[in-house]
Design a protein around this nucleic acid. Structure first.
Lengths: 216, 216
DNA sequence: GTAAAGTGACATCATCTGTTGTCAGAATAA
DNA sequence: TTATTCTGACAACAGATGATGTCACTTTAC
């Protein structure tokens, strides 16, 4: 009855148990992006996720307690990727505000264009799943808004901070970018990336200019 | 076997069949707002809707083919109400652009504040339900963006129209308003209506001012 | 008064799906 | 070689729920 501790968790096909688990988990994450992004979260069953991943249910529950947990993992993964790409794009244009905005927006819209399934997951499938997922969404959006707020403050160091107003305005800006992206996605990326960048930059510049005006 | 055509669809408790059906349908709509707005669309069963409405399942299927059909009806009802309230608010400030924006934004945020369950339905529960509901959402959002576009064009009649850019910017503005409202809702309406109006008006004015500038 | 229509409570059916369990065969350790 | 572990295919179980049906009772039409 008692298992031999020396042989538990051993290698298989020359691969350690940790790596096998990590590879299965990764397969499930990629499958989740594909399936959630096509069938939608609601229409997705654990069986379908496993079929896409080429694994069986047992391995699903090895890595995730349920499909909502997988969705949360995917959402964090994708938003981290966006954060990283945008950060890299910005750092490449160090010190030039206009070029920074352009690079950041372009990297954002290009990411969505290159990964439409991922775009669908983070734009629409994430919403209305549960209170917990809603809270996660809200938290991530707030982080993006906070990032934008930091940038704006850096551009207007002399302007007195209005915590409530500034946070709301940053939230509005993030909402503008998200809604433009959502419309773009649902319209099958009809417009060019350049059009998306131009329009979104217009809005950011407009707010930036308004922030530069003396207050009434 | 053959029913008597003269007695089918007769009055009951002094109420015609049309009116009885309409009353039951209305009860279901109100129950849907309450239940979808608290439990969420996903967590809602037909049984729960009927219990809240004080009706039985038979009468649910008398008016709606399924709960998604009820959601669509509710969404159209609520967005119509917002449209009407905003239009009324604007028409009361005929000709004064700043007062118009103020009145429109105030009526919008006040509506959400007064009807939190309705706000949740139109902000989060409507998303990711099905392709059909997504399309409805997109269509309504486009209508609101079109409305905003009309207003902006009226304020800048001399500016040449850029169909793609203008539509994208209007979409962005609507997204800003929706995201601010969503954050407000998920934060239990922590900020005052006046704060919401002030911040959102700031964004609209910023874009309006940018539209007034000569193009590069 | 009586038959037909309307109502409400509830049963029922069928299906779906999350989750766990079984088992035979492949790979490994000793 | 042999016992143990790992894997994959699939069975099985339990619960939920959409949708429809049953039936006793109420109301209406004539």
């Amino acid at each position: 009855m008692t298992a031999n501790p020396t042989t538990r968790g051993r290698a298989y096909r020359g691969v350690s148990i940790e790596q096998r688990r990590a590879e299965r988990r990764e397969k499930l994450i990629q499958a989740g992006i594909t399936v959630f992004g096509s069938t939608g979260f609601q229409g997705t069953t654990v069986r379908a996720l496993c079929a896409e991943a080429g694994l069986t249910e047992r391995y699903f529950y090895e890595s995730f307690s349920n499909s909502e947990a997988l969705l949360r993992t995917i959402y964090l993964r994708l938003t981290d990727q966006i954060r990283e790409r945008v950060s890299q794009a910005i750092s490449g244009q160090q010190g030039q505000p206009d070029a920074m905005a352009d690079a950041a927006l372009r990297s954002y819209f290009e990411f969505l264009h290159e990964h439409p399934a991922a775009a669908r997951v983070i734009m629409t499938e994430i919403m209305g799943v549960s209170a917990e997922v809603d809270a996660l969404y809200r938290r991530v959006m707030n982080e993006f808004a906070g990032f934008l707020l930091t940038v704006f403050r850096g551009l207007h160091p002399e302007r007195p901070a209005h915590p409530v107003q500034d946070a709301l305005i940053a939230t509005g800006m993030i909402g503008a970018l998200v809604n433009m992206a959502m419309r773009w996605l649902l319209n099958d990326f009809k417009e060019s990336v350049t059009d998306m960048v131009t329009a979104s930059r217009f809005i950011l510049i407009a707010v930036n200019n308004q922030l530069a005006l003396p207050e009434p």
